[in-house]
Write a protein that binds this DNA or RNA. Structure first.
Lengths: 166, 166
DNA sequence: AGCTTATAGTTTGATATCAAACCATATACT
DNA sequence: AGTATATGGTTTGATATCAAACTATAAGCT
């Protein structure tokens, strides 16, 4: 069959104007693949959080970074990057921003003049508690979607996945 | 206490040289938040897949795009962007690349000269089956980590999350 | 001490992404 | 028909990210 690339469509249900709605899309193997759906879920949740935290002038990245510094006073940038699962170079601008806005204080260590020693300032703590309220709202939404029944199990699997590829 | 921002550390376990290992990091609330762990899991799985698919000269994005076109012949770029959960503008360079390498064919529609009509070429199908083998390998790894018991439930929750923020 | 190698952080270059502005075509309304 | 509005796709500008090259210190070895 000299298939001339016409629309041999497998899509059946279509919107009233003939466009393919998301419903009518054929996802093939993607539909049941973890990788793809993990990406979609993360993207969706991330966007939702971005929108929320944008209202208080923050980004998810800055929020996670600030939380980790607050919980681990004196942490270095490399340690931080490993904890946050990002390359250390990605952290340079983030920390720069936090320092510039006076939320984080950065000092050289005495016994190792290469490394920095990060701490959250008083202002940083205030900012953090605002963010925290915002993040809790977001988490509540997520919890509602997941359901209490499955939450713990779901979380545990996420952790295994995060750890699973070293 | 005039807290002068010294290392009042809550971290206890430290590596032999005094650095904070990932184990010893205090994640605070992040430890049990879905958003953060979702991001970590996704990033980890995505990187693993990237490494694998890099060996065959492809990217996860191109792979998903090509699959969706193959499964939905004649699909437009806007439909595609919705299906893949990405902005239509992100798709422009991806499709350009696929077309340039002869994997996808792009034609204007007759009844709507604005829209394109996308189809996978013969070469595209060949490339796709190579990618498919690679992706299946990746999925097997993920399945091993998740475990068959929980797979279906896990997938279902991911889908709910992806759909949950419209 | 002096070389070699490792490590902390920054810089640079490549991608991926979104969002908003934009252009061309379609559709709707008068 | 003619104007206003909507839609498909591209362009542009801003971020976020990684990886590799780089700079400076540090540690180890001879």
């Amino acid at each position: 069959m000299g298939v001339k690339s016409g629309n041999g469509g497998s899509r059946v249900r279509r919107g009233k104007n003939g466009e393919a709605t998301v419903e009518s899309i054929n996802f093939g193997p993607l539909a049941t693949w973890i990788g793809f759906n993990l990406r979609m879920a993360q993207e969706s949740a991330f966007q939702a959080f971005s929108r929320q935290s944008q209202e208080i002038g923050e980004s998810p990245g800055r929020f996670a970074t600030l939380t980790l510094i607050a919980r681990n006073p004196g942490i270095s940038q490399t340690e931080l990057s490993q904890a946050a699962g990002r390359d250390k170079s990605s952290l340079t601008p983030v920390i720069e921003g936090l320092v510039r806005r006076g939320l984080v204080e950065r000092k050289r260590l005495n016994h190792d003049r290469r490394a920095y020693c990060l701490n959250v300032t008083r202002d940083g703590k205030k900012a953090l508690s605002t963010m925290m309220r915002c993040a809790r709202r977001h988490e509540k939404n997520l919890d509602k979607i997941i359901g209490l029944r499955d939450r713990a199990r779901f979380l545990e699997i996420l952790k295994r996945l995060a750890a699973g590829f070293d």
